[in-house]
Amino acid sequence: MKTGTLPSPLRGIIPPLVTPLLDNDTLDVEGLERLIEHILAGGAHGLFVLGTTGEAPNLSYNLRHELVQRTCAQVAGRVPVLVGITDTAVSESLRLAQTAAEAGAAAVVSAPPYYYTPSQAELVTYYNYVADRVTLPLFLYNMPSHTKVSFEPATVKALSEHKNIVGLKDSSGNSVYFQMLCNIMRDQPDFSLLVGPEEITAEVVLMGGHGGVNGGANIFPHLYVELYEAAQNQNFEQISILQQQVLDISSRLYTVSKCGTSYLKGVKAALSALGICNDFLAEPHQRFQGAEKEKIKSHLAEIKSNMQRANSVSL
């Protein structure tokens, strides 16, 4: 077993892996292997399994544990693997964290338990409890649209004092909030601040953030790595070119339907069109069919053509 070393702070593009499925309780194992190799070949700095993009809340516990084991075995320490352990029952979170540690993951990631809304004081107590009991470094996961609560900057600051809490992934989409985090954490440069929404990844890296956990990097990992590097180097001309490509993906692939999972359906449909993995979604959600699937294929072809044209112009 090889464990990917966790840099301090963790930087770069850490794609939130989709979970390739054949049915509700069967992994598309070959698709998972192809997807992992596709992402790593694109230069990703890590992988995040069992996040929102990975459909974690809709997967059985058996499937979650199997996914962690297979992913860590496939990656074999080439990059850090981060494992989402979010659950409404802390015992299940700790059990999955144990599997992650045994499999060779580098860290675990936890959003607040959903359904009931905890107070900020309860978040501090809860995460200190979890951090005391997991053997891997712990990332906080701010996902207020799904958990109904946001980590206040002061709460993040308080939790960062725990030696085992090493970073935060923010999926709020709120750039002002992220800037406040950067400001309050400025005296702790080893505390990693990562952003979810890919449309603002370059922006937050420029303001001091450490990278992106971007769903589109499942499809075009090299693009997001290049965007991160351009932001790191403050290459504004290159940022402008690459940012347009990212927005092209976002506006064409993630908005084909009006449902709440349109983004996820778009990512999985694109991966299926590329022959990488199956596009089955866990119940109750359904994959794109017919006209929607054809629209994804058409948009994907246009995106690839636009990327090639932009790249030829920039050479």
Rank of each mutant, 00 (worst) to 15 (best):
P118N: 12
P112N: 09
L123V: 06
G104H: 01
T135K: 15
L138M: 05
T135D: 15
K148E: 14
V109N: 06
V130S: 01
P153I: 03
P113R: 03
P137H: 02
L136Y: 04
F151G: 10
P118Q: 11
P137A: 05
S145L: 13
A121S: 13
P144K: 04
T125Y: 07
T155R: 05
T147V: 11
A111Q: 12
A107K: 00
K148G: 14
L123R: 03
T125R: 11
T135W: 08
T155C: 12
L138K: 01
D132A: 03
A121V: 13
V156F: 00
H146Y: 15
N142G: 07
L138W: 00
S110C: 15
Y127K: 01
T117Y: 07
S145D: 15
N128C: 08
A105L: 04
P118H: 12
P113W: 02
P118I: 13
T135P: 14
L136C: 00
F139I: 01
F151N: 12
N128T: 06
P144A: 09
Y129E: 09
Y129A: 03
N142W: 05
T155Y: 05
Y129I: 05
K148I: 12
L136G: 00
N128M: 06
Y127P: 09
R133H: 08
E122M: 06
A107W: 03
A121I: 08
L140A: 09
P144M: 11
Q120A: 13
V108L: 02
P137D: 09
N142E: 12
Y126G: 07
F139Q: 02
A105K: 02
Y141L: 15
V124A: 05
T147G: 10
P112A: 11
V124I: 15
P137Q: 03
V109H: 06
L140M: 11
P137E: 08
G104K: 01
P153D: 08
S119A: 08
A121R: 15
V124N: 04
Y141K: 15
L138C: 06
P113V: 05
S145I: 12
H146W: 13
V124K: 01
T117D: 11
P144I: 01
K148D: 10
P153V: 00
A105T: 00
Y114K: 11
N142K: 05
S119K: 10
S150C: 12
T117I: 14
T125G: 11
K148P: 09
N128E: 12
S145E: 15
P137L: 02
L123K: 04
V109E: 08
L123F: 01
P144H: 08
A121L: 11
L123I: 01
T117M: 13
Q120G: 09
D132P: 03
T117G: 10
P144W: 05
K148R: 15
Y116V: 14
T125D: 13
A154N: 13
E122H: 02
A154D: 13
Q120V: 07
A111T: 07
S145R: 10
V149H: 06
Y127F: 07
Y126D: 09
N142V: 00
Y129D: 11
V134W: 04
G104F: 02
V124D: 07
A154L: 14
